[in-house]
Structures are given as structure tokens and as C-alpha cells.
């Protein structure tokens, strides 16, 4: 737990003290303008689908706790919109994913996601391994080579 807390503090302090370095980033595919034109041309994806795209990192429909990546379920609507807009406009740009992934999302989509997440119940999931019935075959048994992550 301590490790994750420290990492989280590192992220926060990094956001404050470091500038985003974008010198050799590679951007491609649609331009932002073309992206927004497509968004206008077709009906908006459902709030459920938009929110579900966050699941792989933030836990099922935003519900994952106890990790570096924060939960979204139960988040106040205005707070969600504010944070997303800060990422999108570069005001709170970060260097991992959010400063990038928010760029092509429309304001309407952000509002729809905010409303969806505000209605979800945050579920405190355990960090414990959930699959206690895993049978480890003999060939798969090994020792962990624990490396020093430098933050513990």
C-alpha cells in the first residue's frame, strides 16, 4: 500500500514540477479537427460504451480501488468534467495517458461520461488475488526475481 501511495504522490508532484516533454512524440491518423467532424456526423456513442472504454485501466466501469490509477465510479459530475477538461486543454496535462486520450473526446461525450460515472456505485475491490482456485502446474513453478523498484 505504501508503495502505491508514494507512487501516487510522485505523480502528483510530477504534474506540478515537470513540464510535459513532447519533442519526439509521434502523432498520426486523423487530425483533431477530422476527428470532431466524424464525431458530429454520427450519433454519440452510448454513455455506457464510452465509460466502458475506461474499464481496462480504471477497473470495471471505473470501479477499481487501491491502485495508482484512481477509480471513477461515484465521482462527482462537475469534478469529473473539470478534471477531463483540464487534461484536454493541457492545463493539467500529464505524461501518461489522460493528457492524450482526452484530446479527441467531445465536450458532450465528457458530460455523458460524467453523468454515467456519477451514478455508479464505487466498489472497493480487494487487491488480493481473486483466483484462489488456480492450480499451478509443475512446469510453471518458479521463483520471483524481485527487482528494486526504487520507490519502496
Amino acid at each position: 500500500m505504501k508503495k502505491f501511495l508514494l507512487s501516487f504522490l510522485l505523480i502528483i508532484s510530477s504534474l506540478v514540477f515537470f513540464n510535459v516533454q513532447a519533442s519526439d512524440d509521434i502523432i498520426g491518423g486523423l487530425t483533431l479537427e477530422e476527428n470532431f467532424q466524424l464525431a458530429k456526423k454520427f450519433p454519440m456513442p452510448s454513455p455506457w460504451l464510452l465509460a466502458a472504454q475506461c474499464s481496462a485501466c480504471h477497473g470495471t466501469l471505473g470501479a477499481e480501488y487501491n491502485e495508482i490509477i484512481p477509480p471513477l465510479a461515484g465521482m462527482n459530475k462537475e469534478e469529473f468534467i473539470e478534471r477531463m477538461q483540464e487534461y484536454k486543454t493541457g492545463e493539467a496535462n500529464d505524461f501518461i495517458v489522460m493528457g492524450i486520450i482526452t484530446q479527441p473526446i467531445t465536450d458532450e461525450e465528457i458530460i455523458a461520461m460524467a453523468e454515467f460515472f456519477a451514478e455508479q456505485k464505487p466498489v472497493p475491490w480487494s487487491k488480493e488475488k481473486g483466483h484462489k482456485d488456480v492450480v499451478v502446474p509443475e512446469w510453471a513453478k518458479m521463483e520471483v526475481n524481485k527487482h528494486d523498484k526504487g520507490v519502496e
Binding site: Q21, D24, G29, T31, E34, F95, Q103, P104
Partner: peptide, 9 residues
Amino acid sequence: KDLYYVQGL
């Protein structure tokens, strides 16, 4: 249609 962003060094 994709819009991608590869982080630099």
C-alpha cells in the same frame, strides 16, 4: 479511423 499518439523518449 484512428488518431494515435506515441509518447517520445
